[in-house]
Design a protein around this nucleic acid. Structure first.
Lengths: 221, 221
DNA sequence: ACCTGAACACCGTTCAAGT
DNA sequence: ACCTGAACACCGTTCAAGT
């Protein structure tokens, strides 16, 4: 760590860490003016740097966005992990608390979240680190579910991967709808409340088990 | 209906219904090459029309996208309504079938769905018709939930609006994650299966009722 | 009325040139 | 090594001009 001291080159740098400054400026711009307003020229101007200087640090604009997404996934995974750990420490439901942390992260870091699950998400194969970090974040949720199955037996008869997908879809849906202002004017408290309610209904449903719906036609086997 | 016969003007029209052709071309382009590839110049070229001809029919590019979204919401509401009606006719769960129809619509009409819940969704206040159509589609879901509360008593103790938000978030989450290819390589059958499982777990949870989670700390009152 | 072509103010990206 | 300025091929949008 302390062994590698970056020797400052002779040329005058505008920024000691231009790469970090570029991603930070990107995050700030997205937050303040939206993704569409993100312009390499504007970022360069913000940093007092030529508009082509970015190409020294990133292959192109989407690589910069991928870096924002990667940074987001790292923060994201940490938020989920510590929420689950803290819940376990006070004997709360780790899955419910992870859901609250999920939605809270999305709402507090909308720039990162939008970038994580926006265009960069679609073409993740170009940035293998992205898919890996996203998978690691998902594994935190998957781990909590398998643990719950083993410890309390809740949902033990279900495929944990399917349960994880359902929980993910639920919190992702709440987060995106809340960001779009579709969950009413409740403000920030509403999404968390909704998130808790969702987790508890799902938990109760898993505990109770599924009796076949009254008129299920196609999938009796 | 048949009373208003549009008299063809003397000037030579490239398209009898340029407005409809423009939105159709937009939908097709989004489906085939993504929203970012949607270009007024390209659409004009596709239709053999000047790239500024569109301004005779739409205020700007976002108005064209709003039209695509509006068209999408109308088809969407119809799909939801008929799914619920059909479910009632054969005594199936209307909510589960609406969820399947929701996800199915999203996957079969990704151009429309992405536009409906994309940028146009954010600035819906500029296009009041959009918000109205979106609200009408949501009301189909809300109505099915209040009906279920009244008829079968399931979830009767809950705020129907909160339940509707939770169901919406669930199916919206499944739809968007499926579109992003995040629900595994299962193909088209997987999202529907997940959707049914989610609806049944939620239903079972509402039927069973919520006993307080083991270590709920903050919200005892 | 409807459409066109040129023009304007923007983009991302490339590249030879500077230090 | 790192950064710059000019240049290129694109955008959306405006507007005077055509029929």
């Amino acid at each position: 760590m302390a062994a590698t001291v970056r020797r400052k080159p002779k040329g005058a740098y505008h920024h000691p860490d231009l790469e970090g400054a570029l991603t930070a400026a990107a995050v700030r711009t997205i937050r303040e003016r939206g993704v569409d307003a993100l312009t390499l020229r504007d970022i360069g101007a913000q940093l007092g740097v030529s508009r082509t200087a970015i190409y020294r640090h990133f292959k192109d604009k989407s690589a910069l966005l991928a870096q924002v997404a990667l940074e987001g996934f790292r923060m994201f995974r940490h938020a989920l992990t510590s929420a689950a750990d803290e819940a376990r420490a006070r004997a709360a439901d780790p899955i419910e608390e992870m859901g609250v942390a999920y939605v809270g992260f999305a709402l507090e870091n909308q720039s990162h979240y939008r970038t994580m699950f926006g265009d960069a998400f679609e073409c993740a194969e170009e940035y293998p680190g992205l898919a890996a970090e996203g998978g690691a974040a998902f594994d935190v949720l998957l781990g909590a579910i398998t643990e719950e199955q083993a410890v309390s037996g809740i949902g033990a008869g279900f495929d944990p991967l399917e349960l994880a997908h359902i929980f993910w879809a639920g919190v992702h849906g709440i987060a995106t709808l809340a960001m779009a202002g579709q969950l009413g004017p409740g403000g920030k408290g509403k999404p968390e409340q909704l998130c808790r309610l969702q987790a508890r209904i799902l938990r109760a449903g898993l505990r109770a088990g599924l009796n076949p719906a009254p008129g299920t036609a196609s999938d009796a086997r």
